[in-house]
Structure formats: C-alpha cells, structure tokens
Design a protein around this nucleic acid. Structure first.
Length: 560
DNA sequence: GAGTTTGAAACT
DNA sequence: CAGTTTCAAACTC
C-alpha cells in the first residue's frame, strides 16, 4: 500500500495552528546557523521540552526558516558529508552530547541512536561520518528516513527520489506537518532523561548504566532488546516500563546484557553480536557463561528469600519497570526455559503484565507447606517428649512418676500450642499431624518411624523431613548437654523454669529444622536451574518435552 | 553485496 | 485499538 508514494505529497490536512503558530516565535530562540558553520558548537541544545521541539519543527515551515536554509544550503555544498541541521527538533541535541567536532560543527541526530556511540564503539575514536540514509520509497519524507526523523536534510545520502532537501522545502514542510499531525511528538527526542536514571549511578560489570528511557518504549519481540533493532539498546539505554517488549534482556542486572559488554570483549562487535544471539536464544544468561557459582547462589537466594536489601546490586528484582524484563532474563533466562507452566507469565506484554515467578515455584507446593507445618508440629512435640524422656531417665525412679506426668502434660500443652501456631500460619487444616493419615501407614521407614513413632506420614512429609535425622540428633545427642543441664536445673528449679527451657529447646530445634529445609530448597533451586539451563541448551529450537516435575525433583532429592 | 530479519512507522 | 503493510536499518551469509 502506498503511503502516498505515488501521487501527491503528504496530505495537506495540516492544522492551521500547527502550521504556524506557537512555533515561529521560538525560532528566535534557536541558533539555526549553528549547524552550518556558525560560531556555535554546531549543536543546538534545547531543554527537553515538547513545545520547544514542536516549535522548532514548525519553525521549519516558516518562510523565514526557509530563507535561512536556502542560504545555508550553499554552505552545505561546502561541507560534504556533513548534514546540515534543519531547524527541527532533531537538530537539537537533547541532553545527549553529540560527537562534537569543533573543526566542523556536526549535526546531531538525537533521535537516531546511530549517531550515538555505543559502548563498544566508545573506544573507536574515529570521527564518525554522519549516517546517510538509503531511502527508496519514502522520499525521505517519512519517519522511516533517519534524516527526516532527525530533522536534517539529506545530504550525500544514498536515497532515491529524495525530497528532504531545500529544493523541496515545501513538500518537506508539508511532510513535517503531516507527521506532526499524526504524532505531535514525532520529532521529539525519543529518549528522555529518566527520573529513575539517577537511581543508580554505579557501574555494572563493564557496563555503564545509561540514564534515560525511551519515551514510547520499544516493542521488540525477537531481538531480546539486545540488538540495534531495539531503539532502547541502540540508544544505549535500558528498557523501561514504557517498553512493551517481549523477552527483554536489556535491563539493569541482565546477565545477558552484561555478557555483551563483558571485559575484554566489550569492544568486539562480533563478540557482542554473538553474545546477543546466544542470549536471545537462551544459550546464556543465568546459567550460561558469565555466571559464576557465587552469583548463582545469590540469585537463588534472591529468588527464594527475595533478598534484595543486603546486596546493593540486587535491585533488579525490586526494580521498577523490569517486571517485564525479568521475565526474559537473568531470572527469566532459566525461568523461561522452564517448560512448566510459565506460558502465562511470558506471553503477556507491557509493564506489570509480568508476574515474577520463582524458580522454586514448581518445587514448593502448597501441600508441601502444609506438610512442613505438620512436620514442625510433630517435631516440636517429639522434641518435647524427647526432652521429657531424657529428663526422666536422669531422675530417680522415685521421681519417675512425677517426671512422666510432667512430660505428658508438657507435651500436650506444647502440642496444642504448636497446633495453634500452625493454624494461624496456614489457616487450614495442616495443624493436625493426623492429616498425614492420607498417606497411609505404609511409611515406617527409619526416618518416619524414628521421628514420628509410627505416625503415618505422606511421602511429601517425609521428603520435607529430610533432615529429621539431624534434627533427631540434635534433639537427642546435642541437647544431651542441655538436658543434663536442664535436668540438674529443673530438679532444683521450680516447675516453670524447666518448662521455659524446654520451650527454648523446642524452638531451637524447630527453627533449626526449618532452616535446614530452606537450605535444601536453595539447593533444589540450584539443581533445577542447572537442569533447566542444560535442557534449554540442548533443546533450543526443538520441541520441549515435559520437564520432570519440580516437586518430584525435590522429593527425589530429599529422599536421599 | 545480496538476501533476510527486525521493529518502527504508517495504514486500515 | 488491534491487525496489517510498508519501510529502511540491522543483520547474516
């Protein structure tokens, strides 16, 4: 379909006010000669203000501006390869310092990130020639044309049927107006200095965090925002909440992104592209190169505990816009590689459309939590009983009767207390260790038997009680000293004091147990990460088969 | 350098 | 506003 390719030029449905008004006056605010060999640096720096921008564009259409450009055009001829700035927005350098060539003032194409040095290009001190467009069908009068979009005349370009020049100023003016009518911000800089840009001035590994964000945001789907197709990447800024990109890897903390600019390879464009490809295809990332055990460990901890405060570099999880970016990267690189039930989280687009999902999401089941509660309850009861039993053993037979009653009453009390706590926590029926009945009495494994004294426990419970032997050891061996101490004291102290110590010991055991379980989960997360990453590597491009259920992984592991 | 891919812009 | 087409730059071979 033609975009007016053939016939008449951009529709002249120009709004009167757009055509003239507010803009002309602003013309005087600008040094339009700057870019033409004027005295200035050649860069007109404007405050980032929409109106200013529009004003400049509109000013272009003014007769006065045309007259000026006519003059300037002759100077252009003397400055081959240097695009004369038009009096349009794009001529303006917004906050982004252009590669200034004092010898010959250069025109900056603020909207064209191409004009901006990429990190990998920074070392290339070679003065860059102004980019030349190659338009064939747009007459260089649409935003497709970088020159036009940047508000400069084509000069020395390879374009065909170019109207973006002084000779066709009228047509160009109309095009500008038409473009503005379509989008009043068309000539505004796409990259705005970001309020959150100051959020973090530190540098990531080999990467300078760029400030600013894309006003409209990118909509990349396949590039992972790690190629210059992506306007954000091209502008050397991070994707923001404005972006609606998919599988974004251009966010703060993205390992894929960091990998692009890592170390000695930062200047190697080939490497960067290769790394980008690898990142996009999932070959790298959290589990790919550029990852280290420490970071993986930390990430795992972040995932499970949501730890972000301790490590100043862990902002990304809580980092604003990156919900939709997390999805695709560091965390997401392996998350997304997880075949199980992530479709819903990766399909969405737009800010806030993404819900962060822990790697352990498939590992931790509600049932497991319930059972963990039950385990802790049982453990607490057993601890109390063990303590009581040991106490009784150290006491005289004459005290047996007393000790027994004490233990039983204590146990009852503690049991009920713990049950109550469990109820509060889980708000369901997990309190009762009897719920384990569902698993049947089959489990009299040494684990379960020792611990629960024949209490039927589900496999999941047993799995979660993976450390029960340790716990038992602590409850029986380690506490021995305590028990001895406790016995000695309790025998001398009032009833309440002994109970307090039992409580403390119980709490210690339960918390220890809980801690161990958490540590295990961390381990499982790492295991799963490894599995997923290897799976992703081996199955990229192929149909992903169902991955072993994370829960099974847990239980298998815990069973050992 | 030709062909392909990509995503913004333009259009329906 | 969503879907489609056009376009030119970026990228691959």
């Amino acid at each position: 379909m033609g975009e007016g390719e053939g016939g008449e030029f951009p529709p002249k449905k120009v709004q009167p006010d757009t055509a003239d008004f507010p803009f002309k006056k602003r013309v005087t605010q600008l040094d339009f000669t700057a870019g033409f060999g004027g005295v200035s640096s050649g860069v007109v720096v404007l405050p980032e203000h929409p109106q200013s921008t529009q004003g400049m564009v509109a000013s272009l259409s003014s007769a006065a501006a045309a007259a000026v450009t006519q003059q300037q055009h002759q100077q252009q001829q003397q400055q081959k390869q240097i695009k004369p700035p038009m009096v349009s927005t794009a001529t303006v350098a917004y906050a982004q310092p252009p590669p200034i060539n004092t010898a010959s003032p250069r025109v900056v194409k603020p909207e064209s990130p191409k004009a901006k040095p990429r990190p990998n290009e920074l070392k290339d001190a070679t003065p860059k020639k102004q980019k030349q467009c190659n338009c064939k069908h747009s007459r260089c009068l649409k935003l497709y044309c970088e020159c036009f979009a940047s508000g400069i005349y084509c000069d020395g370009c390879n374009c065909v049927n170019c109207y973006n020049n002084v000779e066709n100023e009228a047509a160009r003016r109309d095009a500008v107006e038409a473009t503005l009518e379509r989008n009043p911000n068309a000539f505004r800089p796409k990259i705005a200095s970001s309020p959150h840009g100051a959020r973090d001035s530190r540098k990531e590994a080999g990467e300078v965090l760029m400030l600013g964000k894309h006003n409209k945001g990118c909509h990349c789907k396949k590039s992972g925002c790690l190629k210059k197709y992506c306007e954000c990447f091209q502008a050397d800024i991070l994707c923001s909440e404005n972006c609606k990109c998919m599988d974004c890897k251009n966010f703060e903390g993205s390992e894929e992104r960091q990998a692009l600019f890592h170390g000695d390879h930062a200047n190697n464009m080939a490497y960067i592209q290769q790394a980008a490809n690898a990142a996009i295809t999932g070959g790298i990332g959290s589990s790919g190169y550029a990852s280290d055990p420490v970071s993986k460990k930390r990430r795992c901890q972040e995932l499970f505990f949501g730890l972000t405060a301790k490590d100043p570099s862990v902002h990304r999880l809580g980092h604003f816009p990156q919900e939709n970016h997390i999805r695709g990267s560091a965390p997401s690189s392996f998350l997304s590689s997880m075949p199980v039930s992530h479709a819903g989280t990766t399909a969405g687009v737009g800010p806030s459309k993404f819900t962060y999902r822990s790697l352990l999401a498939d590992i931790i089941q509600n049932q497991d939590l319930k059972e963990l509660c039950s385990v802790l309850v049982v453990l607490s009861g057993e601890a109390a009983k063990t303590l009581a039993d040991q106490r009784s053993l150290t006491q005289k037979r004459a005290e047996d009767q007393t000790a027994t009653s004490l233990a039983s009453s204590t146990q009852d009390r503690l049991q009920s207390q713990k049950d109550s706590d469990a109820e509060k926590t889980m708000a369901d029926d997990c309190l009762s260790a009897n719920q384990a009945n569902k698993a049947g009495p089959e489990d009299s494994s040494s684990d379960g038997a020792d611990m629960a004294e024949g209490r039927p426990m589900s496999p999941g419970t047993l799995a979660l009680m993976c450390d029960e032997q340790d716990a038992m050891f602590m409850a029986t061996a380690s506490p021995n000293g305590i028990m001895d101490h406790d016995c000695s004291t309790s025998s001398h102290l009032p009833y309440g004091k002994g109970m307090t110590e039992i409580y403390a010991e119980q709490e210690r055991i339960v918390l220890t147990k809980f801690r161990d379980c958490l540590n295990r989960l961390i381990t499982f997360g790492e295991i799963k990460e490894t599995q997923c990453s290897s799976l992703a590597r081996t199955e990229i491009g192929s149909q992903r088969g169902p991955l072993s259920n994370g829960t099974e992984v847990v239980r298998t592991e815990t069973g050992n």
